[in-house]
Simulated scan of single mutants.
Amino acid sequence: MAETAFIDGPNARLAYAHTAGEGPTVVFLSGYKSDMEGTKAVHLEAWAEARGRAFLRLDYSGHGQSSGLFEAGCIGDWAADAQAVIEAVTEGPLILVGSSMGGWIATLLTKRLGARVAGFVGIAAAPDFTEDGFWAGFSEEERTRVMEEGVTYLPSAYGDPYAVTRRLIEDGRENLVLRTPLPMAFPVRLLQGTEDEAVRRETALALFDHIDGPDVRLSFVKGTDHRFSEPRDLAMIETAIVEVGG
């Protein structure tokens, strides 16, 4: 495994692990409250290293080994964190691999990084989830609480409750990607498990339909959940990376 290094980012001191190799550099973008030590990130790093491929994984502010408070962050901050690490550490073309919230962040980066993006793999991608998931699912009481008190807490199947802040909701509305054009001139592969309890299949279809590109494919995997980390799932991610240019 690559050693963890740090840079001073726009919002915090940011942790990352970079493996040198041939390009395009594969960049793994983790999900909400996840970090770069997750199963998919570590597996793909080893897979890339075995093939002499450049690879980057990172922690957003308030996540993993990066500094900052999770509750203080938002989509715009975390996208800026990822962009800062990518621009400081890598050169040349990129393949963005986004898991859950990382899929949303990857779509934002396709606009910000422009021609550097050579491919995109979305794993249970969750674009616009602060609005279409959190806010849409809130009761009137929860909406009032988050707007007046600044935070509400939602139960999680993966550990401690999620802290959903007013800033997260309001910033999310500034970064929605399913309401504006989403051109992707490069190959795109979207992977979605049928047993995903966090991201609905309707979300995967909405992203698939919304992306404007010549080579966009969506695969549903029967029986797979949101983690998408079983051996067959990891093999599918590897295949998707190869298909988009890896």
Rank of each mutant, 00 (worst) to 15 (best):
G21A: 10
E170V: 15
A124S: 10
G9W: 03
T4K: 08
D160R: 15
P24M: 09
P93S: 12
A41G: 11
V85T: 02
W104K: 08
A82R: 00
R227S: 14
T224H: 02
A20V: 09
E91F: 01
Q192G: 14
I123L: 09
A79V: 04
R166E: 07
M236Q: 11
L29R: 06
G62N: 12
E131S: 13
D225T: 03
R200W: 03
G223L: 08
Q65S: 15
L168A: 15
A88P: 03
T203C: 13
R217Y: 04
V26N: 06
K33F: 12
L58A: 06
F228E: 04
D77Q: 15
L69W: 12
D225W: 04
A2L: 01
F55M: 12
G103L: 01
A15Q: 06
A204C: 11
E37I: 05
A118R: 09
A82Q: 07
A72N: 12
V221I: 05
I169K: 12
A79L: 04
G73D: 07
V188W: 10
A5N: 08
L58K: 00
R53M: 15
R179M: 02
A240Q: 04
T39H: 11
R143L: 07
D215E: 15
E149D: 09
N11K: 04
S99Y: 12
T194E: 08
E202H: 08
T19Q: 07
P181H: 14
P10L: 03
A2K: 03
N11D: 07
G246N: 06
E91H: 05
L191C: 13
F129D: 02
E148F: 09
E195M: 02
G76P: 09
Y153M: 13
D132S: 07
L176H: 09
L58P: 00
L58H: 04
F134R: 01
G102E: 02
N11H: 13
R232L: 08
F129C: 02
P181G: 14
H210T: 10
L182V: 14
L58Q: 05
G62D: 13
A125Y: 04
G102H: 04
A72E: 13
A15K: 00
V177N: 12
W78V: 07
T194Q: 10
D81G: 02
S229P: 01
E22P: 05
D209W: 09
